[in-house]
Design a protein around this nucleic acid. Structure first.
Length: 439
RNA sequence: GACCCUAUCGUCCAGCGGUUAGGACACCGCCCUUUCACGGCGGUGACACGGGUUCGAAUCCCGUUAGGGUCGCCA
C-alpha cells in the first residue's frame, strides 16, 4: 500500500507549534515509509483567511525543513489543493448524499442525517474506541453547508481525504471526538475510512491549550529568536514521542528512521521553552561551521554588519559558535570585529572599567601583548597570565576589563580567541583607549 | 451537563507483573574555568487516591478525583 498523509491547516493567523508538530509527525510517518505528504489548505471560511497566513504556512514548513509532494504551490494528481477551489467536487459528493437520502435542510443550511449507530474508531495511537451515536441530543446531526452555500469543515475534510486518497490521517487529539462523525460520512459516501492517529495536544505552562499569548506558540517566534530549525523539530518530536532510550539530541534523519506512530504517547504535553532552548544550544554547538554560517548570515545581514567578504566572517563565527545560544545574538557578538564604532555597554564600562586599578592593568596588558612575537590564543593566554602574576592580580581582573575594552560587552566569545581574531594592533589600541578612560 | 482521552520528579521522556523507579531540562552544591556558556561530579525531586486480581503491582481491572478535549451554520 502506498502511504499518503496530509497536513491540512486553515490559513487563519500564523503557523503555531501544535500545527508544526502535526505536520512534522505526518512528514516523519510518510517519509519513513516512503509515502507521500500532501499539503492542503482548508480555506472554506473566507472571513477568517488571509494571504499572509497562507504564506506563513508554507514558509514555516519550508523553514522547518519539511517538504511535501502535492500542494497548492506545485499541484498534483488530486488537485486543486485549496478547498476554496474545490467547490465542484463538494457539489458532486453532496449530490451523492442527497440521492441516498442522507441530507435534509434546516433553516437554509444542509445537515447530514446520522445513522444513529455505534461507531468504532480504531486509532493507531488511542486504540479502539466505541462511540454511541444514538442520542441526537448529545450528537446532533452535523451541518455540512451554510445557507450562503459555503462548506463546513467536517464534510469537505472527509471528501478531500477520500478524493486525495489519504491512507492515514494524523491530527491533533482535539479531533478524536469528531472522528465518529467523520466515519459516518465515509460510510455514507461508500468510502473506506483511512487509518486514524490522534496525537496528544501541546499545552502551555498553565496546562491550557497553547494560545497566541503564550511565548513560543508561534513558529515565527523561533525563526526570529534564532532557533535552528533542526532544534525545533527535535524538540517538537519529543513532545509525545521518544526513541525509547536516553537519546534526546537527534538529527531529523535519525528521528525519521526511528519514528513510529505506535510509540506516540496519549497524554498531552506542556511546552517547555527552557528545554527547547537547551536543545537549540546543543544543535548549534554540534552543527558544521558551514551550517552555522548559513543559519546566521540572515541575522548578520539584517543587523547591517559590514563584514566585507564572507571569508572574514568565518573566523568570527568560529569563536562564537561554541558559546552562542540564539542565532539572533550573533550580530552583537561579532560586531566589535568589523567596526571601531561598536556599541559599548555602559553598565559594563562603568562596572568593569571603573574599578580601581583597571587603568594600570589595561596598560600593563597592552604592553605585554604588544611585545608578543607570536599572535595566537595560547600566546595571548600565556602573556595575560604572566602579566597578571606580575601585577599580583587575579587572571579575571585582567580578563574582564580586557573583554570590555575589546568588545564593549561582558559576554561573548572566549577572550583569547577573540583577541586573536581581532589582531594585535587593534587589540592593543583598544586596550590603551579603554585605559585612558579607566579608573 | 453528556461523551471521549489522559494520570510516573516542577516539565518532557523511559518503565509495558519482580528495578535501590531511569534519563533530560530546570533548580541547588562542588570541580574545571577568563565572565556567560560548555564539560564533569553530586543533590533535591514522582508512580493522584481507594478498591480489587496476583506469591508479587507504577505496570492488569473497577471506582473516585483531577486535568485536557469534543459536543458550532470555527477549523
Amino acid at each position: 500500500m502506498d502511504i499518503r498523509t496530509r497536513f491540512a491547516p486553515s490559513p487563519t493567523g500564523y503557523l503555531h507549534v501544535g500545527g508544526a508538530r502535526t505536520a512534522l509527525f505526518n512528514w516523519l510517518f510518510a517519509r519513513k515509509l516512503g509515502g507521500k505528504l500532501v499539503l492542503r489548505i482548508e480555506d472554506t471560511d473566507e472571513k477568517r483567511n488571509t494571504p499572509e497566513a497562507r504564506d506563513a504556512i508554507t514558509e514555516g514548513l519550508t523553514w522547518l525543513g519539511l517538504d511535501w509532494d502535492e500542494g497548492p504551490d506545485m499541484g498534483g494528481p488530486y488537485g486543486p489543493y485549496s478547498q476554496s477551489e474545490r467547490g465542484d467536487i463538494y457539489e458532486k459528493h453532496l449530490q451523492k448524499l442527497q440521492d441516498a437520502g442522507h441530507i435534509y435542510e434546516d433553516a437554509g443550511a444542509l445537515r447530514f442525517r446520522s445513522p444513529r449507530q455505534t461507531v468504532v474508531v480504531e486509532d493507531l495511537v488511542c486504540g479502539k474506541i466505541p462511540f454511541d451515536m444514538s442520542n441526537p441530543g448529545t450528537h446532533p446531526d452535523m451541518t455540512i453547508r451554510r445557507p450562503d452555500g459555503s462548506w463546513i469543515f467536517h464534510f469537505v475534510n472527509v471528501v478531500d481525504d477520500i478524493e486525495m486518497r489519504m491512507t492515514h490521517v494524523i491530527r491533533g487529539e482535539d479531533h478524536l471526538s469528531n472522528t465518529p462523525k467523520h466515519i459516518e460520512l465515509y460510510q455514507a459516501l461508500g468510502a473506506t475510512p483511512p487509518q486514524f492517529a490522534h496525537i496528544p495536544l501541546i499545552l502551555n505552562k498553565e496546562g491550557k491549550k497553547l494560545s497566541k499569548r503564550d511565548g513560543g506558540s508561534s513558529l515565527a517566534y523561533f525563526i526570529e529568536e534564532g532557533y535552528a530549525p533542526e532544534a525545533v523539530t527535535n524538540y517538537l518530536c519529543l513532545l509525545g514521542w521518544s526513541p525509547k532510550d536516553d537519546r534526546e539530541v537527534l538529527k531529523l534523519e535519525t528521528i525519521r528512521e526511528l519514528f513510529d506512530l505506535g510509540g506516540v504517547n496519549r497524554r498531552n504535553a506542556i511546552f517547555d521553552l527552557d528545554k527547547c532552548f537547551w536543545i537549540n544550544g546543543q544543535h548549534i554547538i554540534h552543527m558544521t561551521p558551514t551550517r552555522f554560517m548559513d543559519l546566521t548570515l540572515p541575522f548578520i545581514e539584517k543587523a547591517g554588519i559590514a563584514y566585507g567578504d564572507v571569508s572574514r566572517l568565518a573566523p568570527a563565527l568560529a569563536i562564537v559558535q561554541p558559546k552562542v545560544k540564539h542565532l539572533s545574538d550573533v550580530p552583537e557578538w561579532i560586531a566589535f570585529l568589523f567596526t571601531e564604532d561598536f556599541p559599548i555597554d555602559p553598565e559594563a564600562s562603568q562596572k568593569v572599567l571603573g574599578k580601581a586599578g583597571a587603568k594600570n592593568r589595561l596598560e600593563a596588558l597592552a604592553a605585554s601583548l604588544g611585545a608578543l612575537g607570536e599572535w595566537n590564543h595560547s600566546a595571548i593566554e600565556a602573556a595575560l597570565k604572566a602579566c597578571a602574576s606580575q601585577l599580583g592580580a587575579k587572571v579575571g581582573e585582567l580578563v574582564h576589563p580586557a573583554r570590555v575594552a575589546a568588545t564593549g560587552r561582558q559576554v561573548g566569545p572566549g577572550l583569547y580567541e577573540l583577541l586573536e581574531v581581532l589582531g594585535k594592533d587593534r587589540a592593543c589600541a583598544r586596550l590603551m583607549k579603554a585605559a585612558a578612560s579607566a579608573a
